[in-house]
Simulated assay, not measured.
Amino acid sequence: MNSFPQRHIPVLGGQAIEMLEPRKGGLYVDATFGAGGYSRAILGIPGTRVVGIDRDRSAIAGGFDLVDRAGGRLTLVEDRFSNLERICAAQGLDAVDGVVMDVGVSSMQIDVAERGFSFRQGGPLDMRMGHDGPTAADVIASASETDLAAIIYIFGEERHSRRLARAIVAARQEAPILTTRSLADIVSRVVRSKPGEIHPATRTFQALRIFVNEELDELHLALAAAERVLKPGGRLVVVSFHSLEDRIVKNFMVERGKAGGGSRHLPELAHAAPSFVILTKRPVTPDDDEISANPRARSAKLRAAERTNAPAHAAAALPAWPVLADVLRRG
């Protein structure tokens, strides 16, 4: 009998564990612990050990029962998953057999109005996955019109970004924008949607959430950290939920899955051996039954790769997009 019954099944959870291939006695990192779905499945294999990471204190607290039941095989750490290499070192783990991550905001966070992620529920304009740092309201209050337009365009892929930025700046001069509904109302006056289309505020809220939590920088750093901590033969499995995330994961795996071409300026790259073998030629996506049971699954994509014995590639510089600290300082 499985002593770790699943109370929450992650999107593409079965496929993710199948790709991860946890084996008896293996060491694994659940880089986005959430409700513990991946960790429970991994702990169902005898002798496995899991380090679960989540920046959300409520997720960590919700996992204490699983920690007790795991009998010393599960360690939970409240931290950003970009720090997984340092976290593993602190646990005395030089290398691990697998890293699994489910990128983006969780259903638990969206469904709690007080967290301020959803425009469909009234709540404070917060959007922080953790419990520290600036909120979305802070960004809306102080970012310049230029920065707001860039944030909404880059992280929300919203073509009306300039008009929205102007409208936000004009509205905040009249009164502070402190709630999800007040921001959603401003956006809805600028962006019109037809029946059957996504809510007008969807892309703007996505952009703010990604920006406040520095999600894309975190993902870049976490993927590179996973590359450094995985043993040869260890597997990296990533589930993402929108095109910006999936593009980062895809590009990372493609880049690491081929030998460096090099150039006359950087000839040493010509000898960089592939650090991963790609296991998913095409991303794995949910079937109709899973989408019917959970409509939020419809955009999910899973990609997986297996670590070779080649050295980790040099980490690339982060993209030159708006940075939270810089935007707030300029504001």
Score class of each variant (00 low, 15 high):
E174F: 00
D30V: 11
P283V: 13
V327Q: 07
A315V: 15
A143P: 00
A224V: 10
N294I: 06
Q91W: 01
K231L: 12
L328M: 13
L93Y: 11
P267W: 04
D68A: 09
E245S: 07
M129P: 02
Q15D: 15
D111Q: 07
Q173M: 10
P5F: 12
A225M: 11
A300D: 05
E114F: 02
R203N: 14
V327E: 05
A167D: 13
N2M: 09
G37R: 07
E174M: 04
Q91S: 06
H313Y: 12
T280W: 06
D65C: 01
G331L: 03
Q121C: 01
F155M: 08
F4L: 04
V77M: 09
A95S: 15
L244I: 06
D147V: 04
I291S: 03
R228A: 12
V29G: 11
P200Y: 13
L219M: 05
I53H: 08
I140P: 00
V11W: 07
E197T: 04
A273S: 15
R203F: 01
V29W: 12
V212R: 14
T285M: 08
F241G: 05
T75L: 10
A320Y: 01
V103R: 12
V11A: 11
E227L: 03
S144F: 01
E78Q: 15
D111T: 08
G98L: 08
D132A: 13
T308N: 12
D68F: 01
S188Y: 03
L66K: 02
L76M: 15
P319I: 04
F117V: 10
T280Q: 05
A297C: 05
A316K: 15
L183K: 09
S144V: 04
M253D: 01
P295N: 12
G133Y: 08
E218K: 00
R256K: 13
P46Q: 07
L12E: 01
G233R: 05
V277A: 14
V187R: 10
A170H: 05
I17K: 11
G26P: 06
S39D: 14
H265N: 07
T48C: 02
R49D: 01
A293L: 11
K301I: 03
I198T: 13
G234V: 06
S240N: 09
V169Q: 02
V77D: 09
A175E: 14
G261H: 05
S182V: 11
A207V: 14
R282V: 04
S299A: 02
A90I: 09
T202N: 13
L236T: 11
N309D: 15
M127E: 07
I186K: 14
S299R: 09
K231N: 14
I140C: 03
G116F: 04
E227Y: 07
D56E: 10
A136V: 07
P267Q: 07
F205H: 14
S3E: 14
N83W: 06
P22K: 06
S299G: 00
S299D: 04
